[in-house]
Design a binder for these strands. Structure first.
Lengths: 138, 138
DNA sequence: CCGTATCCTGTCAGATACTG
DNA sequence: CAGTATCTGACAGGATACGG
């Protein structure tokens, strides 16, 4: 081939190893979970229920912008995955309480790590965006 | 109703507290990053480039199922965010190499944590799904 | 109060063809 | 090889209304 002789001045002292993860088959476990997290409401709901159990309309009010339909769908998916628990009480107007499961808590903890990363590095990201946009504008 | 005394036979030594994260305004840093991760291709590309630098069509072949257009769009977004680096060599057929940046590596490490969670807990999730589906089918 | 059903709209990914 | 441009269809999700 051409052997362009590219120098490697980048990556000075960054953590050298990022554990490889296998997500390249459509049906592998990792892929399934990542696809679930691709739903932003999932992240919001898990984060909320990680703090305390909540009722349906309470969640709805709390998470601004989610529609009844989507909230319902998402809660059902998460219940199916065993990440949260649904309890219905046969009160006069029916009362439903959603709570996070131990399994869901362990995932929420990982998500919180991502959130922390975001807070720590958002400035670097926005700085990069500014530079990119400035370079593209000329 | 209260104090259900739910047994915790799962999660033997999981961290009891999930740090709250703030993603409930549309424009806050965390939300922006999570929205970016909501793109499944982002996760696949970062995971791939975390292993080694790659060329465009190399990535395309490696990540089965991604279209030229979407790969191009996604790479551009990630470059804009400063998560990966693009180098073009003026060879006869132009050669472009994408590599992960130190910043991108730190994020890829967090993503790998999620992937590891998926591998560890996929059985519990699938078991929960089976139970849910069985209960719903009758 | 807690959802489901229906309609309707915008978004976005795939296919295809073309350029440097 | 490394993209860009355009068209099109599928599908997610909002609004609304209704049922348990």
């Amino acid at each position: 081939m051409t052997s362009p002789g590219h120098p490697e001045e980048t990556t000075p002292a960054s953590p050298p190893v990022v554990p490889p993860y296998d997500v390249y088959c459509e049906a592998c476990p990792t892929r399934l979970v990542l696809d679930r997290l691709a739903d932003k409401w999932v992240v919001l709901i898990l984060g909320r229920l990680a703090l305390r159990p909540m009722r349906f309309n309470q969640l709805r009010r709390d998470i601004q912008g989610v529609s009844q339909k989507v909230l319902s769908q998402t809660l059902k998916k998460l219940e199916r995955d065993g990440l949260l628990h649904r309890r219905a009480f046969a009160t006069v107007p029916v009362t439903v309480e959603y709570s996070i499961t131990p399994l869901g808590e362990t995932l929420a903890a990982r998500i919180a790590e991502i959130a922390r990363w975001a807070e720590q590095h958002i400035e670097a990201v926005m700085e990069a965006q500014r530079r990119y946009d400035a370079a593209g504008a000329r």
